[in-house]
Amino acid sequence: MHATDQFLPLVVKDVTYEVNGAKLIKSLNLEITSSGSTIILGHNGSGKSLLLKLLHGVIAPSSGLVTWNNNIPTTNQYWRTFLLQTPTFFKQTVQYNIEFVLSIAGIPASEHKTRCQQALEICGLGEIRHRNTHSLSGGELQKLSLARAWVLKPRVVLLDEPTVALDPPSVIGFEQIIHQFKQSETKVIMTTHDLAQAKRLADEVVFIDAGKVIEQSQAGEFFSGPESNQAQIFISGELV
């Protein structure tokens, strides 16, 4: 049995999300059952980030239902973490920011040191653990965001275009940590519009466009020949 199986399937049933009468997510249906990584692809404004927020419970659907193994998500379920595209941190040390997450998750203080040490090492932040976050680079901040997730030992990690502002070496470093998550049987659900990255990381692809799921398939199938016209245009690199 895979460690994430108890939290799956993830079911999104007829979900609509409206802001001021504008339907940004339209009767979206999706079922994720596999424990491998799921990459949500789509162009800018397709609704990827909103979908992730709905999956984590950061926002509630205007109608429809999101469930993880029949349970409605709330943000204080720490088996699941969500990395924002632009995470924010306290202007304090790297270590403080990681330990803060342990405190809010109610992890006993006796475990803080060991867990923090592990997260710092996995994410390559050991040497800068005492540095203030305001002196970190974009890549280091994203690694800190990952460390903040890792320290909770989540079974599912949701990532919203985490590498969008990073240079290629930082992206590679970041993806290595994502692989560590996968190896530790953590399900990765990540949005991106970077096709090369999607190919490197995806086991399964969900392609969304205009707030609707257009296609869901195994990564190999998707990249060798997507079924939908929109996905074909997207992976051929044309602007939609």
């Binding site: 950061v58 943000t75 720490y78 995470p87």
Partner: peptide, 18 residues
């Protein structure tokens, strides 16, 4: 920090001191 606090499931009371 509002969105980050929400994503982390951080109760407001625990965010005040930092």
């Amino acid at each position: 920090h509002a969105l980050q606090f929400k994503a982390l499931g951080a109760p407001t009371s625990l965010t005040l001191l930092p």
